[in-house]
């Protein structure tokens, strides 16, 4: 790896709010105003959001919440970020019943009925249950594939997997 690329990987670089808000608006029709009051940074292939304030000059390990990954196309929202911003979504969202929500929280894939699928585009979707956001799902070929991180799944055996959690969204 060249010294140049390693620098880019390890530094938080400021991002324009509009740039981030536009992506979320295009996919989920989340109003761009939802993102005012936050600062955005890119580090390696992740985007981070932190409440607006004067940030002192320090060497940071993280800045607020990691909200999306740009590693693959399409970009992927984190479950944590959807639980904050996803409630404002008007498109590419899905409401589950109790049985489906349980499966989703256990990290399972769920076959969807035709009725639920209407209006959904393939890709990442905001998953709701009783009006609350559960997290990120991947909708593909009539199936909803849970993207809930291992450490936050309901069938969790009690073992801590926090460190794995850092690697997967």
């Amino acid at each position: 790896m060249s010294p140049g690329s390693s620098r880019i990987r390890n530094v938080f670089e400021p991002m324009e709010r509009e740039e981030v808000a536009k992506l979320w608006n295009e996919r989920f029709s989340i109003p761009v105003e939802v993102f005012s009051g936050f600062l955005f940074f890119r580090k390696a292939r992740s985007v981070w959001a932190i409440s607006e304030s004067d940030l002192p000059r320090l060497s940071y390990e993280s800045l607020g919440m990691r909200i999306m990954s740009l590693k693959d196309r399409p970009w992927k929202p984190t479950t944590s970020a959807l639980q904050i911003f996803g409630k404002h979504a008007a498109r590419n969202l899905i409401h589950l019943d109790e049985h489906e929500a349980t499966l989703f929280l256990q990290g399972e894939s769920i076959p969807l009925t035709m009725k639920i699928q209407s209006g959904l585009e393939s890709g990442y979707v905001v998953v709701f249950y009783r009006g609350e956001v559960l997290g990120c799902g991947l909708y593909s070929h009539g199936k909803l594939i849970s993207q809930i991180p291992k450490s936050r799944r309901m069938a969790d055996t009690g073992e801590r997997v926090d460190i794995d959690d850092i690697g997967c969204l």
Binding site: T78, S80, I163
Partner: peptide, 20 residues
């Protein structure tokens, strides 16, 4: 740092920056 980060993110904390 890993559990610190994962707890903050799970709890919807937006105004915390972590240093080491």
């Amino acid at each position: 740092v890993a559990p610190l980060r994962s707890n903050c993110e799970r709890l919807g904390v937006m105004n915390v920056a972590i240093t080491r």
